[in-house]
């Protein structure tokens, strides 16, 4: 691997851009906060989709008309 990959606090190229107080390796790290944030985003999307139902289908007349033939491009 290239030497440009950052090595972290105990590596050859420590960076002065971080204030690292501990080293967490792959097995010690549990991204629970990320799971919570992704869950929140998912709930927002669900709420917006429900909102969209009111905007699109109750606020206006139907936009796709016709039966099967229209949908498959035969009419």
């Amino acid at each position: 691997m290239s030497s440009a990959i950052e090595k972290g606090v105990d590596g050859k190229h420590p960076t002065n851009e971080t204030d690292q107080v501990r080293e967490l390796d792959h097995d010690e790290y549990d991204p629970i906060g990320t799971a919570i944030l992704v869950g929140i985003y998912f709930l927002i999307l669900v709420a917006l989709w429900i909102f969209m139902y009111f905007v699109e289908f109750l606020g206006n007349g139907p936009t796709v008309t016709g039966v099967l033939l229209t949908v498959v491009g035969l009419a």
Binding site: D19, Q20, R22, P31, I32, L37, V38
Partner: peptide, 25 residues
Amino acid sequence: TAFTVVASMEHGARQRGGKGYLSWL
């Protein structure tokens, strides 16, 4: 990408001493 990038940021935050479910932010 949303998952991987946020998980990488959380890793950084916890290495900087961040704790908790969301207070690592």
